[in-house]
Structure formats: C-alpha cells, structure tokens
Simulated assay, not measured.
Amino acid sequence: MLCMVPVQEMPQVARVTIHDVARRAGVAPSSVSRVLNKHPNVSAQLRQAVEEAVRELDYRPDAGARSLRAGKTNLVGFLAGSVVNPILATIYMSCEQVLRAQGYSMLLATSLNDPHLDVTYLRLISRRRVDGLIVSSAVARVDLAADIVADLSVPTVMLDRDMPAGERISAVMSDHATGMRQAVQHLVSLGHRRIALINGLATVRPFRERQLGYQSGLQAAGLGPDPTLISNVAVAESLGYVQTQLLLDMPNPPTAIIAGANLLLLGILKFIQERRLVIGRDIAIVGCDDLDIARLYSPPITVVARDLSMLGETAAHLLIQTIESGRGSTVTLPTYLIVRGSSTVAGLGHT
C-alpha cells in the first residue's frame, strides 16, 4: 500500500555547512575555506583532513553564495511578451544554448504582453542580482520597460526594441524596412497597384520599420501611399479578420495584402477562405516571418523572413560582450523576401 506523508510532516534534511566540515576535521572554518578555494599555503595534512570530512559529510558548497561573494551570479534574465509565440520561443532556445555553453543559466519571465507585468518582472529579475538581461518587452507602452532598464544599470540586450539611454545597453535589431520594401517591389512588378498593409501598432519598432519600408517601396514605384489601405491595430487574429473584411468590401478593394504579423495573417487567411477567394489568383498575400503556417498553407505564403536562431545567438554573444566590456553596441541583422505561390500571379480582381 502506498502511504502519502503530509508535506508538513516530511522530515527536513539539514544542509551540511562549512562549520560542520570544520568540526568533523577539527579545524577552523577559515581553514576549510582555504582548502576549498585551493589556497597555495595549505599543509598536506590540513588538506587531507578537510577533504576527508567533505567526502564523509557529502558537503557541497553553495554555488550561489560563492558567486555572490565573487560579484557574479552567472544568471541572465530573459523577459518575453509570450513564449507561446513561436518567434520568441525560437529566439529564446537559441539564446539559451549559447549562454549555457558559456556557463550561464537563464531566468525566464513572460509578461503575457502586459506592459505593467514587464515592469514588475524586470524589477523582480533585478533583485536576483542577474549578470545581464535580454528584453523583448510587451507590444505597447515599451517606454515603461525602457525606463526601468535604464534605471537598473544592468548589462542589457534589447531584442528589436527602441533602446533606452545607457552605457551598458546593447540591441539586436532586424532590418524590417528593407525586406518590406522588397515585398512591395515584388508585388508592383506583378502588376499590383492597390497594395494594403494590415500592421501592428506603429509605436513598436518592428511594425514602425515595416510600415516605413512599405511606404518607401510604394514611393520608389511612383505610387503614393493610400491611407485607406493602411491599418494599425493590436496584434490579434480577430483584428486581422475584421480589417480584411473592411478592405475587401471597399468599392475599389486592394489586389494584394501584406500582413505585418503572423496573428494578423491568420485572420486574413480565415476571412479570405470564408469569402471563397483563391490566394495567388484572386488576391496576393505576403506575411512576415517564415513560420509553419506560411510554409504549409496552400499555396505557401510569400514572406519577409529573418533568421530567428541567428537573432537569438547574436543576442547571447552580444550580452556576454556587454557584460565583459561594460559598453553597449548595436547589431542589425538582415531580412529577405521568400517568394512563394501566394503572390506569383498579379491581381485580377475578385468577386
């Protein structure tokens, strides 16, 4: 029969301390410390007595306490809006692999895209005396988190977010504007003239840069941006759906739609399916980031892509560099267009 012991009745195992080792060896705690720290001026007799006591008591030094005394914890805080987001999940995993190989452990906090939780978690992480931070803050009011990051004075890498002022603050950015400009030029070359953009809020850097690239691509083609074809909304599938409906119900609807985020793309695809339009024939679609939904949809979706694993690896290396040098820097990584079946045919109109 299996017996469950109530938690409050479970015996508490006392941690073996350096004082226990000293008593067993018959020496002072300071002598134990000298042996454990491999001090050169220690007699063979003392070293043998301490090492035997350590083995007998199965003593394990408190790595956390030792690192604090050394002024280093080998902990890195990672603040993300949501790791359910496959983009951030990929970045986090590649980042963690690099840091683990360098002897760091990561503390992950997810704010569920709540900017106030961003601030709360940043403060909590800083109390753990982390050696550094990697921050991808919530999709709104990034200034709140930026102010906290600047005040903490902890070596920090911002992931594709506007940088607060600070000597030890670095950033890894993506060149969203170039990839978006390529997408617009691609659509224009296929005969599209009414190209819509359903985008996130322009207060967040990636969406702002994508919109600038979109406008630049239109201007390079001699097409003035039409405000009725541009939507800035919170990133949600339902809003992508609603904005697509509004666009396609216009008297002169767009023949191509660019989605500034994957959740918006899902809403766009859902409405187009319900309207029984054929992507690549009745309307062209372009997304951002090369995730499974883009590769597996039929036809596959043309996307403005970036190397998410490289982004995470770069953030990790840049943080280590910032910790060691005490100086921040910025690295910008490229985006590029992957052309697929969703945009290979010029818009012929839809019913």
Rank of each mutant, 00 (worst) to 15 (best):
L108K: 05
S33C: 09
T244F: 05
V172Q: 04
E313C: 09
I268M: 15
D160C: 09
S343R: 03
A150F: 06
S238E: 15
Y336K: 10
L348V: 08
S94C: 07
D143E: 15
E56K: 13
F271I: 03
L229G: 03
P300E: 04
R340Q: 12
L122N: 01
E51W: 00
L133R: 01
R100C: 02
R127M: 11
V184W: 01
A80N: 02
G64C: 09
G81M: 09
S111W: 07
S137E: 09
R181F: 00
S137I: 08
R127H: 11
T73C: 12
G166A: 13
S43Y: 10
A305W: 07
D114W: 03
L79W: 04
S126F: 04
E51S: 05
S126R: 12
A150K: 11
L319C: 06
Q45S: 15
G328A: 14
E56N: 08
S43K: 08
A145G: 09
A294V: 11
K72D: 04
S153K: 15
S137N: 13
R127V: 02
S298C: 03
G191R: 02
I198Y: 03
R208E: 14
M158R: 05
L187Y: 02
Q211F: 06
M173E: 12
A177D: 08
I268L: 15
P253S: 04
V119K: 08
L248V: 10
P11V: 12
A261T: 06
E52A: 13
S153G: 07
S94E: 13
Y336P: 00
I230P: 02
L239I: 12
Q8D: 14
S170I: 06
R55Y: 03
D226R: 10
S174C: 10
I198D: 04
G166R: 11
R15E: 14
S30Q: 14
R127D: 12
G328D: 13
P155F: 13
M1A: 12
R281I: 04
I18F: 00
